[in-house]
Simulated scan of single mutants.
Amino acid sequence: MSRQEMFFNPVMEEVNGVNKMVMPYVKDAERTADPYKFDLDQNGVPLFTDKNIAFVNGMVENDSNYNQTDKDELCKIFEGMFVGNADHRMACIGRAVYEIDNENSTRLTAVGLYKIDDLMKKLNLKPVEMTEPDDDEEKKTIDDGEKKKTITGGVLFTSQIIAGIENLKERLSVGDDRLVFEISHASTTYLNEAHVADANKINFSFATKFCHWTCQYLELGDKYCIYDNVVASVLPYFVDNYASGELASWDCCRMKKIKRGKGGQELVSTIENYKKDDDGYTKYRNLYDAVLEGINKWRSENNQNGEIGYREVDRLIWYYFKGASGKRVKQALASIDY
């Protein structure tokens, strides 16, 4: 029995005049019964089954690499962004920006090729010591065992811009796309308005993660999908297998062939180009929504429990495809009939 027959019984469906495979889940009893193995599709890519999602959630939630700060403390930090006096709110915004940047390695502190110390001197600013998210008059500074933690460079500039955004919580609660653009350009905006540097720093990934996690911790709902280089690099595979309608077209998917060694070719995703567009996040989220809709349609047809959202889809894709020198990404994209 071939791998495709073992895990799948492909059914073809006409989409925009093109026959595409829909994905009815066929259980492989031995693999499905094993809690430490992913349920796979015909190309060896994990399916969005309840088991797979629970498996990844368990791995991430219990991995200290992804839980460097206590969850209760993080809740206080994000709530503190919108309560108390101005100093308290600013301190919490700085902490929130720092924690998201630190846990996701979005390299927010650096601003292009500029030296942070030089920029801080030109702005007459000093690094800000981080404090505990309490309203006590006597603030407790935070250290890493050796020295006090501080907020500086792009983290500080971004925090200042976020603090100045009017109706931030209301805009987050409705999933305002424009917030991603404003926050991703925060360092550039801050430095250009101060006339100290002609910066052009865009941190699209951080902006999506700030909006996503702020909504999560404030229980505003699953309003923002995360942009991550790993997810973006393999998203065309999921567009091809789950999306339908206009957004399943290759123009939207934005892939290209590149030459590799001895005349060979391989497919690579160019979805990262969305970062350069003023409406890039809107385009990216529309594409992601088409995939999410297809995933939930598949789950409904294959006896899975309810719909899932951005968080579950992002985690499963990111966890499976990160690392491995990009080998899994290449294999997934190579399976697309392009």
Rank of each mutant, 00 (worst) to 15 (best):
S2N: 15
R3M: 14
M6C: 08
M6I: 11
M6P: 03
P10C: 05
E13H: 09
G17S: 09
V18Q: 05
M21Q: 11
V22W: 02
V22P: 04
Y25I: 14
E30G: 00
R31N: 13
T32N: 12
A33W: 02
D34C: 10
G44E: 04
G44N: 07
P46Q: 00
P46R: 03
L47T: 11
D50F: 01
N57S: 06
G58W: 04
G58F: 07
V60D: 10
D63V: 00
N67A: 00
N67W: 04
Q68T: 14
I77S: 03
F78S: 06
E79W: 01
G80A: 09
G80D: 06
M81H: 05
M81C: 15
F82Y: 12
G84L: 15
R89M: 11
R89Y: 02
G94C: 12
R95W: 04
Y98A: 05
N102A: 10
N104E: 09
L108T: 05
T109C: 08
Y114G: 08
K115I: 11
D118A: 10
K121M: 06
K122W: 01
V128D: 06
V128I: 15
E129W: 06
T131H: 10
D136V: 10
I142G: 10
T150V: 15
T158Y: 12
S159P: 09
I162C: 05
N167V: 02
R171Y: 07
D177Y: 15
V180N: 04
S184M: 14
S187D: 06
T188I: 07
T188D: 14
T188R: 14
T188E: 15
T189R: 11
L191P: 06
N192P: 08
E193Y: 04
H195V: 10
A197Q: 14
D198S: 11
A199M: 04
A199S: 13
N200E: 07
I202L: 13
K209V: 09
C211A: 09
H212P: 00
Y217T: 08
G221D: 08
D222Y: 03
C225W: 01
N229Y: 05
N229G: 14
V231G: 02
A232N: 02
S233M: 03
S233N: 09
V234I: 15
P236Q: 03
Y237F: 12
V239P: 00
D240P: 04
S244L: 04
S244K: 12
S244R: 09
G245F: 03
E246H: 12
E246R: 02
W250V: 11
D251K: 04
D251L: 13
C253Q: 09
R254P: 00
M255P: 01
K257Y: 12
K257R: 11
I258E: 04
K262H: 11
E266A: 13
V268A: 01
S269V: 09
T270I: 11
T270S: 05
Y274K: 01
K275C: 12
T282K: 13
K283E: 09
Y284E: 07
Y284G: 08
Y284H: 09
D289Q: 12
V291G: 02
S300V: 00
E301Q: 15
G309A: 02
V313D: 02
V313Y: 02
R315L: 07
L316C: 08
L316A: 08
K322L: 12
K322T: 15
G323I: 10
G323R: 08
A324E: 06
A324M: 05
G326S: 01
K327I: 15
R328E: 15
Y338I: 13
